[in-house]
Nucleic acid binder design. Structure first.
Lengths: 237, 237
DNA sequence: CGGCTCCTTGAGGTTAATCAATCCTGGTGG
DNA sequence: CCACCAGGATTGATTAACCTCAAGGAGCCG
């Protein structure tokens, strides 16, 4: 079984490529280059000449921009099944930088080859449009959120996390207790993701704790939400 | 000459629909509904059931979200030739609200009809992808900018304005003097667009004036950039 | 038991929002 | 022609949020 076989499996599991038939999947697999990277590797840098976009098969990555003052603006995080740098299909340089946050397996699609495929397969183009539409909505919300105070941003993040983890793929052990969420990143990364700094995030968590909204057990990545109502109120600034 | 004829003209002038042949343009024109709105009209509201997306033929509009605290987050402005609410093709409600900032002529494309066309015309899908890619880059920059201090945001805005107005369609009288830009919106709208409030914007303009970076003549919408270098430095935080 | 790295806590300063006048400027009517 | 009015724009004083810098834990691995 050639590499492209397991590649096709990964493609099949991706919303972007669902609704494609075997023939189309194989054509895709044929132009996909598998990439494996350890944690904290740079995938591409803002301004680099674009060489294609990526499907994240396994691991977590972040898209960010370096701010002139040395800080970094995290645009978004991505996990398995997510596609990133799609915009590069129509731009000749990357508009942001990207780095793995854990060990990652990726598939890279060369711009030219993928565009050819796109022209031949309307369904693929439409799926990509749908994926980009989702991203647009996400970024729109992101802009909105940055105008809210930090506690509201954190509250919204926690609520979203809770909503996502309520219906988990659940091929895992824990039955995902309603009020308990697991932070998928370090506090440092979360602070960046929320547009703030670790110190402020820490204090905000503390305020939530003292307000009886959340509780943190020994494991610092587990957060129990005690009062959804209050959290929702906090999310409204 | 039916309405669809002048509609087709408007379509032809739009990047999104360039590269389509006559037949395709007419098909598009057939499903486009002309809409005329006076200034300050609501086009759609966040949460409304989506009824299609828009091409702005004439005028200026803004896309914004109402924040829980009463303020509003301006996501972006749009002008003639711009398309907005494209994401709605794949979402069943509008993710943000939209309002005219001046008298406007628009073309509305119904979701269902446009999707049909999209399936039939790969080139159309690819053009739309390109447009969405551009928007993604724009929103990415927008997220980044909101993490910069207000003076840097204003500086970047002015620099972008200057860059745009350097190569104007120039079917107008003024030869677009190198250092003079015209604000396309009121200060109030600009403040919202920059994620701040009029008072702060005013003070920031004042700082720029006192630093010898800009000058404002009698007409308050005209700004002369005296020191591009300093402005660029300000844009870097 | 160091020596990491990550997170937290503390003191202080800066930015920008808020609240509230005041100032223009253009339009209106006396 | 000028007084007046309404809107936006500016300015001022104050407050609150949050960043900065810096010092302490706390866990983890050699």
């Amino acid at each position: 079984m050639p590499v492209s076989h397991q590649t096709a499996d990964a493609l099949r599991a991706t919303p972007l490529f669902s609704r494609l038939d075997e023939r189309q999947l194989l054509a895709l697999a044929a132009i996909a280059s598998p990439v494996t990277l350890p944690a904290r590797s740079s995938i591409f840098m803002q301004g680099d000449r674009s060489s294609g976009f990526y499907l994240l098969v396994e691991g977590r990555i972040k898209i960010y921009k370096l701010l002139p003052n040395g800080r970094t603006a995290t645009i978004r995080h991505a996990g398995p099944g997510d596609v990133f740098a799609e915009a590069t299909l129509f731009q000749d340089t990357y508009a942001a930088s990207s780095e793995t946050m854990s060990d990652c397996r990726l598939l890279r699609f060369g711009t030219h080859e993928f565009l050819d495929l796109l022209r031949a397969e309307p369904q693929l183009a439409i799926n990509l449009l749908a994926a980009m539409a989702e991203l647009l909505v996400f970024l729109t919300r992101r802009v909105e959120e940055l105008l809210l105070p930090v506690p509201a941003r954190l509250a919204r993040y926690l609520l979203r996390l809770a909503a996502e983890q309520l219906v988990p793929p659940s091929d895992e052990s824990e039955p995902a207790s309603p009020g308990i969420v697991r932070l998928p990143t370090s506090k440092r990364e979360l602070a960046a993701r929320l547009g703030t700094i670790p110190a402020t995030l820490s204090r905000t968590f503390d305020r939530f704790k003292r307000a009886g909204v959340i509780r943190m057990s020994g494991d610092h990545e587990l957060i129990e939400i005690l009062d959804f109502g209050k959290l929702q109120r906090l999310a409204q600034e």
